[in-house]
């Protein structure tokens, strides 16, 4: 991010960076509109900054429960054919993707 603290509103460059992190392909107009939306929402959520949260433990889920671990036993899994049938493109028994190394390619 170019703006390094939360008090400065996100710039267009920040928004482009967020779009890239989000794996979204936004054009110039869409970036501008995304920035306006972001500014409106951030303005609203700014009221969180007015509360005193000193010493308050963050609460990532609604109950302070301890995670329950499953027995380390093999379970059922879905057949390869079923999973492959869901993929948009396959080659033999593999899911086809563009080249990951080199210059890419479909």
């Amino acid at each position: 991010m170019t703006s390094s603290d939360s008090s400065s509103p996100p710039t267009l460059e920040d928004v482009a960076k967020v779009a890239s992190l989000s794996r979204l392909n936004l054009g110039e107009d869409a970036l501008d509109s995304a920035r306006n939306d972001l500014l409106a929402i951030l303005k609203h959520v700014a009221n969180l900054q007015t509360l005193d949260v000193e010493g308050v433990e963050p609460m990532p889920k609604p109950q302070d429960t301890v995670n329950r671990l499953a027995e380390d036993e093999p379970g059922q899994c879905l057949d390869r054919e079923i999973l492959l049938a869901m993929a948009p493109k396959t080659e033999g028994s593999f899911i086809a993707v563009p080249k990951v190394l080199g210059e890419g390619g479909a």
Partner: peptide, 18 residues
Amino acid sequence: SAGYYDAYYKRALQVRRL
């Protein structure tokens, strides 16, 4: 994202407890 996590996400989780 880096630089905003504490100000927004962590704070929201603290307000959740409040």
